[in-house]
Design a protein around this nucleic acid. Structure first.
Lengths: 345, 345
DNA sequence: TTGTATGCGTTATCAG
DNA sequence: CTGATAACGCATACAA
C-alpha cells in the first residue's frame, strides 16, 4: 500500500521547504519560474495529489456540493442530477446526493447534515410537504450558496432555475384548442405549489385568449399517478357537458386518463385528446404515444450548476439569479387530430 | 453568520480542556460519567457539530463513498443509487455520484479522482468499454473497499452484487416454451460482457432442457435500443424457418421488436411472443405491456451498500463477498398466450 | 524569492 | 480520570 505523498516529501526531495512547494503548486506570483517548474515536475513524478481534507480544513471549502431531491430514481430528477454532475465534475466538484422522500422533516435534517459536511453549495428541489423555511435561512446564514430548481420556495437571496410553467400550460392548452377541442379539462396536482399553479394559470389564460369560458367543473385535483388519472376521467365524463380533452399537469395522471378512456371505448385522440406534462420516457414508447411538455431536465441541471458556479466566483457579493427555461411542446398521437396542422414528432 | 463552535469553545465554557471534551464526545471509557453528561449537554446546548474535515484529516476516513455508473438517468442505475443512498445515509455516509458515459478513460480518471478524495469505498458498475483493470487494482492497493454491482469484472479481492442472469435468461426462455413457442430467438447485446453471456447461457440451457435444438441463426447481436430491435425482427423474419418468439436481453430492443412486428401486422403475442429484460418502467405502461425480467435494482443497491458496510466493520481482514440476487419473471401481455396458465400481472 | 512559524479542529499519546 | 502536546497536510503572515 503506497503511502500518500505530501508536500513535505517533495520538499525533502528538492531540499527546499514545504511552504515553497505549496506556493509553487498554487501558482503563487512571488516565486521563481525555475523552482516552480522544478516543483511541478517532481510533483508529477512522485504522483503527488493534494489532500482535500487538509485543504478543506484550512480553507473551509470542501469542493463538494449537496443535491437534494425527493427521489433519485425519477427520470426528471435523475436527469437534472446528470446535468449537474456533468457541469460540476470538470470544475473539480463532487456531487453528493440525498433524497427527502417528499418528507419535510427529512429535508430539514438533510440540509443540516449537508451544512455540517460543509458543502460549498446546496442545489435542491423542495419537497411537496415543506412549509417551513427556517432550514433554508440557516443555509443562507452560513453563507452557503443555495439554488432551487423546479420546485422553489420564494425567498430573498436564493437563486432559482425553473421552466416557464405558465408558458407550458399555455402551449399545451392552446394546442388542444388548435386541434379543435373546446371543452378542455385540466388535471392539477396541488395548486399550492408554484409549478402547478403556473401551469393552471397558463391553461386559464389560453382559454381566455381564445374566448373559451373557464369552467370550474373542468378543474380536477389529482395525485400524480395512474390511478388518479383514471378516477379523473370517470368523474369528468359524468358531467352533463363532458369535456373533449384534458391537459394534465402530470404524465402519470394523463396515462391513467388514456387507459380509462380506452376502457370506456372512447377514441383518443379523435373523441378525446390528451396532453401530459414532463415528457417522461414512457410517453413516447406507448403505442398511442402521448403529447406532453418537455422540461429539458438535463439542461435545467446544467443551468443550476452554472448559477452555483457564478455564485462561487463572487464570494463577496450576494447574487440572486432567477433563470427561467422555456418548455417545449411535444405533439404526439394522443392529441394529433386530423383537423390540425401540427408537426408530428 | 454564526461561527462554527469547536470543542475548544465548549471546553472553555466548562473550564476543562479540549481533549477531555473530545473524549466525552467519543464515549471514551476512561472518563467520569459526570463530565461526560455535562459535556454532552453543553455540546447540544451550543449546537456543536463535529468538523468532518478535521476528523477526516486525522483519521483518513471521509465518510463518503463514491458510486460510479455509466449514466445516472437510467432507471436501472438511478434505482440502484436510490438503494445505496437509503442504506448508507442513516449510517452517516454521503454518496458521491459520478458517471462514466460508458467511457473507459473517464472511468479510470474518475476512480483516480475519487481515490484522491479519499472516499471510504467505491461502489460501481463497470463501463461497457472497460478492458484494463489497473485502476481497480489501484483501488485495492489503497485499501479502499471495492464493490461491483451488476456489471462486474472478475478479479481477486473484489466483492460483487449481481443478479443471477443465467436464471433470468432461463426463466424467460422457459416461459416462452411454456406458452407454446418452439422457435425462440435471442437478442443479445455483447456476449463479451458477463451479464449478457449468462443470459444467453440460461437461454440455451432452457432450450436444451426442453429438447429444443439451439439454432445459431436465432442468435442475434444488437445494440440496446429500439432501432436495433426493429432491425433484428426484420432479419429474423427473413429466415426460412422464422422464429415465433424472441427473448431479448434488452427491454429497448424488445420494444423495437414489438413495434416492428406491429408494422408488419404480426400479432403479439399470439403469432409472436416477446420477453424483454430489466423491467424498465415503460414496459408496464405500454398498451401491449411487455413481459420482462425484473432485477430489483433498489434491492441491489441496498445489498451493495450492506456489503460495503460489512467490509468497513472488519478493516483488517480482506472480505470478498459474492452476492447473487434472484431475478423475477414478470409476465405481461406481450407473451400471454391463451394456451398458457400464467399469472397475469 | 524563500524559510519559519502558526493555525484550521480533532484525536492519540504521554504524563500527571 | 484529566491536562498538555503533537500530529494529520496544507496555506499564509511574517521574517529574512
Amino acid at each position: 500500500m503506497k503511502e500518500k505523498v505530501t508536500i513535505y516529501d517533495i520538499a525533502k526531495a528538492l531540499n527546499i521547504t514545504a511552504a515553497t512547494v505549496s506556493r509553487a503548486l498554487n501558482n503563487n506570483p512571488k516565486i521563481s519560474e525555475a523552482t516552480k517548474t522544478l516543483v511541478m515536475e517532481t510533483a508529477k513524478k512522485m504522483n503527488y495529489e493534494q489532500n482535500r481534507f487538509a485543504l478543506a480544513l484550512k480553507s473551509g471549502k470542501s469542493h463538494n456540493v449537496g443535491v437534494i431531491v425527493p427521489f433519485i430514481n425519477r427520470n426528471f430528477f435523475s436527469s437534472i442530477i446528470r446535468g449537474i454532475e456533468e457541469e460540476l465534475y470538470p470544475k473539480g466538484y463532487h456531487v453528493i446526493i440525498c433524497q427527502t422522500h417528499e418528507d419535510a422533516k427529512k429535508e430539514e435534517e438533510t440540509v443540516q447534515n449537508l451544512l455540517n459536511a460543509q458543502v460549498d453549495g446546496i442545489l435542491m428541489s423542495v419537497s411537496k410537504t415543506t412549509q417551513q423555511v427556517r432550514h433554508f435561512k440557516k443555509i443562507l446564514k452560513s453563507n452557503t450558496p443555495l439554488v432551487f430548481f423546479d420546485r422553489i420556495k420564494e425567498m430573498d437571496g436564493v437563486s432559482t432555475v425553473t421552466i416557464n410553467d405558465f408558458q407550458g400550460g399555455y402551449m399545451a392548452t392552446k394546442h388542444l384548442i388548435d386541434v379543435g377541442c373546446t371543452r378542455i379539462a385540466h388535471a392539477t396536482v396541488d395548486l399550492a405549489l408554484p409549478i402547478y399553479k403556473h401551469r393552471f394559470e397558463g391553461y386559464k389564460q389560453a382559454l381566455e385568449d381564445h374566448d373559451i369560458a373557464y369552467n370550474d367543473d373542468y378543474l380536477i385535483t389529482t395525485k400524480s399517478d395512474i390511478d388518479a388519472g383514471e378516477k379523473a376521467i370517470k368523474k369528468l365524463l359524468k358531467l352533463k357537458n363532458a369535456p373533449d380533452a384534458i391537459f394534465s399537469a402530470s404524465d402519470y395522471a394523463a396515462l391513467g386518463a388514456i387507459q380509462q378512456l380506452n376502457v370506456l371505448g372512447i377514441k383518443v385522440p379523435d373523441d378525446f385528446a390528451v396532453v401530459g406534462f414532463s415528457n417522461e420516457p414512457f410517453t413516447q414508447f406507448m403505442e398511442l404515444s402521448m403529447s406532453t411538455v418537455d422540461q429539458s431536465p438535463v439542461e435545467m441541471g446544467k443551468t443550476a450548476a452554472r448559477v452555483f458556479l457564478e455564485q462561487m466566483k463572487e464570494p463577496n457579493l450576494k447574487i440572486m439569479k432567477k433563470v427561467e427555461l422555456s418548455p417545449e411542446l411535444i405533439v404526439r398521437k394522443s392529441s394529433s387530430k386530423l383537423t390540425a396542422n401540427n408537426k408530428q414528432i
